[in-house]
């Protein structure tokens, strides 16, 4: 059993290439959970803790967050709160401060849990992940990165190194609807981001991955109640909602139309 603590991205990539079965450890919150449940044990672990490059953080142009940047940092960083308020909000409502202190942006994306908050907002914000392997680096929009519940299109030898979020040109809203305790994961979440000439509405937590329908969004006329309702209804119609302890598919469908409408009203202003 070995625990590797590389200090550079190159080193990580070489390790990952030579040991495709090794498990990459970021904050370890999701991994801790599956290990405890006996669902995972691994012989090789690659910890990203000591890779300083992966903690790089910038807000000069795009928001640029290394994969090891924590939720807490994104949530509390003044520049993010000012210029990417929707993103700060979505990271700030994840779990508890204790989890956010260690959970990373790379981890939440690679994890691809359907009931997570940040992915919907990142998709709505046109965020892009930089994905690297010994074979090179590529940029993958988050919209394409997450393909299903716990499924990404990362290859075995790849890791996420950085996430880039363009500077918003309009307002944003993130709505997290909880049906049980105030500390629950979302039953329905809606991210809406205005941009020149339109809006991007993404619905999370109701199906296997965040759902975004550009053709429906194109029908929206800001401030027009009728079209707002129609867009909301069309989202509710199109998304294949799932059942879980937080709500039935039927309830989710009903609430998607309510919450999409409310999110659109929030960004109309």
């Amino acid at each position: 059993m070995s625990w590797h603590m590389p200090t550079t991205v190159d080193e990580v990539l070489r390790l990952k290439a030579s040991k495709p079965d090794a498990t990459v450890v970021a904050g370890g919150t999701f991994l801790g959970l599956v290990i405890r449940q006996g669902l995972l044990d691994s012989d090789e672990w690659i910890s990203l803790q000591n890779v300083d490059e992966l903690r790089a953080f910038g807000t000069a142009g795009d928001l640029s967050a290394g994969a090891m940047v924590t939720h807490r940092r994104i949530e509390t960083e003044p520049a993010v709160r000012r210029d990417w308020p929707g993103v700060a909000e979505a990271f700030g409502v994840v779990a508890s401060p204790r989890v956010r202190n260690v959970a990373t942006i790379g981890g939440v994306l690679a994890d691809a849990d359907y009931a997570s908050d940040p992915p919907a907002m990142l998709v709505a914000s046109r965020a892009v992940a930089e994905v690297a392997s010994v074979r090179g680096m590529r940029r993958v929009p988050i919209e394409e990165l997450i393909v299903g519940h716990y499924e990404t299109e990362l290859d075995d030898d790849e890791i996420i190194t950085r996430v880039l979020v363009p500077r918003p040109t309009g307002s944003a809203a993130y709505r997290k609807l909880r049906t049980r305790s105030r500390e629950d994961r979302p039953a329905v979440s809606v991210a809406a981001v205005r941009e020149t000439g339109g809006v991007r509405v993404v619905v999370g937590a109701v199906s296997d991955r965040p759902r975004h329908y550009p053709d429906i969004c194109a029908e929206w006329r800001p401030g027009d109640e009728q079209s707002t309702r129609e867009v909301a209804a069309a989202y509710a119609d199109r998304i294949p909602c799932l059942d879980d302890g937080r709500g039935s598919a039927e309830y989710r469908r009903q609430v998607v139309s309510v919450e999409v409408r409310r999110a659109l009203m929030q960004v109309s202003r």
Binding site: W3, M5, V25, G28, T29, L31, G32, L33, I35, R36, W45, S47, Q49, R72, A95, S96, P97, R98, V99, N101, V102, E183
Partner: peptide, 24 residues
């Protein structure tokens, strides 16, 4: 990671020690 009875401070910040792999 939900209840906090396992909370410890790591460099002064609270974390759940029930989910923290020791080498971290």
């Amino acid at each position: 990671g939900l209840c906090g009875t396992c909370t410890v401070l790591l460099d002064g910040r609270p974390v759940s020690s029930c989910l923290l792999m020791a080498p971290l």
